[in-house]
């Protein structure tokens, strides 16, 4: 199991979800999708929002909770599959907006829906080796689904930022991590293509379920832990059903999954999904609680983490808006508005 030399932890966290929603029923109304829907509704970014703006807001909240000046950050790393520029790192703009200093690493990460946790693992390495005092890992996406495709019901928008720092300053210590990867082409997008393609049911058993159960079981075995040792668990959540099914396969109960299960209300926020679930879980967790997180990225791979909440969390979480503040502000839009905003109408 990869283990840094120095113990690390999450010293700050922040969430962001746009305020607009489109219901799955509204999408189904347009495309005759029937009544068996994967979620209730999904978040929709406003016309002035993208991965960069959402990352900035989540990052500001993480800094407020950490009570660390932005100039102390040694890295701002953003995982996303919807970086606004093909060439020009999102991290450059986010770092400037957060007020970081000149001496900083900013880079964009890519691994489908687990790009954010790739940045988290790298942050653990940099802080755990002593090279950096603090590193910010962000997962953010404004996901696109082809009109009428199954993905369109769930492809949503959101961001989550975590600051990794020394364990003795942590709101939750990062006790262990491991990653698994195989070449499994369940979902991909070729260069210059607007929308990704997916393998329908192939995205399930050999992809999402195989990688998450593999990473989860290996982490539990190497820790010598049981699912019951964890108060909460968070999985990547492409829809409402998958995380609940994989939780059952690994031996976790619904009450362990509930606080971090946001997909029914906001959809699949891709690189943000597992990290937003962690933010929502940290919003309610108490000192001593252990939390397991397993992300998933198509292509395919999974990153698993074990965390333990410290007594610094309750005071710190009040320094920034809770995830529920974003879940509760909700303005519904119809399909026509959504299609216009998301560039789904061909003009000229």
């Amino acid at each position: 199991m990869p283990k840094p030399t120095l113990a690390t932890g999450i010293v700050g966290y922040g969430a962001y979800v746009p305020r607009f929603r489109i219901t799955a029923a509204e999408i189904s109304r347009i495309w005759n999708g029937g009544s068996l829907l994967p979620i209730t509704e999904k978040s929709v970014p406003g016309i002035d929002e993208d991965t960069i703006t959402m990352a900035i807001e989540a990052g500001r909240h993480a800094l407020a909770r950490a009570a660390v000046p932005a100039t102390e950050l040694g890295a701002v790393w953003i995982g996303s599959e919807s970086h606004p520029y093909a060439v020009k790192p999102s991290g450059t703009i986010v770092a400037e907006a957060l007020g970081c200093g000149l001496e900083i690493s900013a880079a964009d990460w890519e691994f489908a829906c687990k790009a954010g946790t790739e940045a988290l693992t790298a942050s653990m390495g940099m802080v755990g080796s002593g090279m950096l005092a603090y590193a910010m890992a962000i997962g953010a996406d404004t996901a696109q689904g082809r009109p009428g495709d199954a993905l369109e019901y769930t492809a949503a928008a959101g961001a989550a930022a975590l600051i990794v720092g020394p364990a003795d300053q942590a709101l939750a210590t990062l006790d262990a991590t491991l990653s698994v990867v195989t070449d499994t082409p369940d979902f991909f997008r070729r260069a210059e293509q607007t929308y990704p393609v997916h393998g329908n049911r192939f995205t399930g058993t050999p992809a999402y379920f195989a990688h998450i159960t593999n990473a989860g079981r290996r982490l539990l075995a190497q820790l010598g832990a049981e699912p019951g040792d964890f108060r909460y668990v968070v999985f990547h959540q492409p829809n409402a059903k998958f995380p609940q099914t994989v939780g059952k396969q690994l031996g976790f109960g619904p009450e362990q999954i509930a606080p971090g299960l946001l997909a029914p209300r906001i959809g699949n926020t891709y690189s943000a999904a597992a990290l937003l679930g962690l933010c929502a879980t940290l919003d309610v967790a108490e000192p001593g609680d252990r939390i397991m997180v397993v992300s998933y990225g198509s292509g395919a791979g999974a990153d698993a983490y074990a965390l333990t909440v410290t007594d610094r969390l309750p005071a710190a979480r009040e320094r920034a808006p809770l995830t529920t503040a974003y879940l509760e502000r909700r303005v519904e839009v119809d399909y026509a508005t959504y299609a216009k905003w998301r560039g789904k109408l061909v003009q000229g």
């Binding site: 929002e49 993208d50 703006t53 900035i56």
Partner: peptide, 8 residues
């Protein structure tokens, strides 16, 4: 009101 950073 509070400041947010958005696309101008």
């Amino acid at each position: 009101v509070e400041m947010v950073t958005r696309k101008l």
